[in-house]
Design a binder for these strands. Structure first.
Lengths: 126, 126
DNA sequence: CAGGATCCTTTAAGATACTG
DNA sequence: CAGTATCTTAAAGGATCCTG
């Protein structure tokens, strides 16, 4: 996903890599419910490497969607929380979750129908 | 993005690669306005290679979000259109566009603030 | 026009090891 | 605990050529 898209004047395209990003969606969803520390977040999201987690968190923090609070105890604890701006995005992202729940059956049915069509094999899809 | 996510029982995670996918979002947005043929769609989306276009279209068709109609003229014409199911997703996706338009300024401001913070350089971000 | 097939480069992402 | 750094592999993506 290159940022230098021809129609880069469109705000959506500028934010597409943030807003239509799997890990960002999952992290925002997790933090929307409650603040979490790094490793708790890692467990909550599930299936994310700590590299991608720290990388995506940094991006979310930079965009003002997530806050990072360090408590200098021993050992140090770092809490990530969603910001007010982040909440507004979380609401929209959550509709993706709702849509998925509402239409997963339709999609699965469509996939099976498609795969059953002569001359097309799902296994041949990239 | 591997499909074998730990919480794969959640519908959203199953559809995340479709629903939080840059090209899918842009293609659905384009077809939501009007049906388009392959190359017209390519120009409308902008910045997409024909490989990714055909690949993503195939996925969208398989998921029942987009229909593909062949008219055997000479040369053959193929029209892609959004389906009823696709429209329901397009509505949700469009809210991402609206959110982007509404909050692009906030995000840009947050980025500048972040980058101005001592010890952090935007250029060092991955 | 609408793609498929190939080759090749770039990026994403995981695994591992190490630090304050 | 909360990361950073490095290495390597898998996948995404682009460019090009080709066909019905």
């Amino acid at each position: 996903m290159k940022p230098d898209h021809p129609e880069a004047d469109c705000p959506m395209i500028l934010l597409l890599d943030r807003v239509a990003n799997k890990w960002a969606v999952l992290i925002v969803a997790a933090l929307w419910k409650r603040p979490l520390r790094f490793n708790a977040l890692r467990r909550t999201v599930g299936g994310i490497s700590q590299k991608m987690l720290s990388q995506t968190l940094k991006g979310l923090e930079r965009d003002g969607l997530v806050s990072r609070t360090v408590t200098p105890s021993t050992p140090v604890t770092v809490e990530y929380a969603i910001t007010e701006l982040g909440k507004t995005l979380a609401i929209v992202m959550d509709e993706l979750r709702v849509w998925s729940a509402d239409h997963i059956d339709d999609v699965i049915a469509a996939r099976e129908a498609y795969d059953k069509r002569p001359g097309v094999q799902a296994s041949l899809l990239p």
